[in-house]
Design a binder for these strands. Structure first.
Lengths: 262, 262
DNA sequence: GCGCAGGTGG
DNA sequence: CCACCTGCGC
């Protein structure tokens, strides 16, 4: 089948980022594009844009908050939204799962940020990881071919933030949420991005509020590309398309791209 | 002194229109630019932009509403804001009067829109014309050299709107407000724009809410260029710079430009 | 429809 | 800083 490029991009409103997607997709051949924070209801999702760029697109969003989408050149066998465990919130606007071919699973996530360690949303965030692990247990084994991507709202190691010691009580850097992230690795996922980019300063998010955050490279690596071994073995490269963060009216995130021989 | 170009432009927020002004002023040599609806307090007026474009600039605005400015290549002898009659509102953010040389007066107006025929603002609008006429009586005779420009929020004749019969009860087209406009002509002003452009479809405002208003030319002529006879005799041309209405993120108005041999 | 305001969110 | 919201003005 050849080399496939799979990207994850928190767009911070898909409708406000069409100029960025237009420019990027015109000079970068992406096979599967996973979006988070589309921030729009399905009726107002700009599906026509993706069709014109040669993608099929599947989305589930809500007004102003959350929302995930998968745009794919190849038609998936099926697509489903949410954690499907009967609990609420059901995660429809935070998780989309597609099957490609007959055994390649792609799960695109927008994990709750959590707000504050003592906020109910942080509890929900930790629960989200629990529920995801149960989803994996129920549907797969570590030998399954699974790619998990998305904004996981966790910087898993000290290398993944700029000032780790200032951030020990941050909802994206607290021990508990790092433990939740690591439980994914323990379940059977490889951090595919780190396999190819083990160095310092590899961020995917630079806060709008930090002055010259990109030039000073004050950022976070919270957008991830994980895969079970059978897929991770086929990964050939991974990188952050950080140039997009410097374009006009950017998202605060940049895409993370993985190349897989599939 | 040679040919002078004087323009009136309701910018619908000066700070949101700098890209339009940048592009326009780079390829059009304007001597005096009169702005309305600058929508910004003086502390946040982008005076540096006008300085860089070679203008002196004088402005009086308020947060979110109203606001007038005059940008001039030549330094005026003096500038004053408001109707100066001791009544309230004083009109500081709706009228600016400059003297050029020792006898050329320029009055730039943003007349209240009026909201509805039965709204107190409509009464205020008619009063505004009364107060303006008193201002003229007090300071000038019809032999004075005066240019009056601005968004007068009146379409004076059936030719100046698209569907006159639908608009008889509109605050910019009602008989009473047209009477107020005509009282300016009777006082001693010539409609300089109509002197040069007597034809149909000469509009200066196209409502954002009307689908494809510009292409369909569904608009209003409410931005005006008037002058007393001694100045009107020296007018050589007038036109609407309607191309600006088609640029990215335009104002809902286009500039009206007059050329005068002064 | 597109400015503004103030507010929430990350 | 830059998305979103509601509400207002034209």
């Amino acid at each position: 089948m050849g080399m496939k490029k799979i990207a994850t991009f928190n767009v911070n409103s898909v409708r406000s980022r069409l100029h960025i997607l237009e420019r990027w997709l015109n000079d970068t051949n992406i096979d599967i594009l996973c979006l988070q924070e589309t921030k729009t209801e399905d009726a107002t999702f700009p599906s026509e844009f993706f069709h014109q760029k040669g993608f099929q697109v599947f989305y589930c969003g809500e007004k102003a908050y959350n929302g995930v989408a998968v745009a794919s050149k190849e038609k998936p066998a099926w697509v489903s939204f949410g954690l499907g465990d009967g609990l609420l919130p059901d995660g429809r606007t935070r998780m989309v799962h597609c099957l490609f071919g007959d055994d390649l699973h792609l799960i695109n996530l927008y994990v709750p940020q959590g707000k504050a360690l003592d906020h109910p949303d942080y509890e929900m965030k930790l629960k989200f990881f629990d529920r995801l692990l149960k989803y994996l247990d129920k549907n797969f084994t570590p030998e399954s071919k699974i790619i998990v991507v998305g904004d996981l709202n966790v910087a898993p190691t000290d290398m993944d933030v700029t000032n780790p010691d200032n951030k020990r009580n941050h909802v994206c850097f607290h021990e508990d949420v790092k433990k939740a992230f690591n439980s994914l690795l323990e379940w059977g996922f490889v951090d595919v991005f780190r396999k190819h980019r083990p160095g310092e300063g590899e961020f995917s998010f630079w806060d709008y509020r930090v002055k010259n955050a990109l030039e000073r490279n004050i950022g976070w690596r919270i957008d991830h590309l994980l895969a079970t071994k059978p897929v991770a073995e086929r990964s050939k490269d991974a990188y952050v398309a950080r140039e997009l963060r410097a374009w006009e009216k950017p998202s605060d995130h940049a895409p993370v791209v993985g190349k897989f021989e599939l």
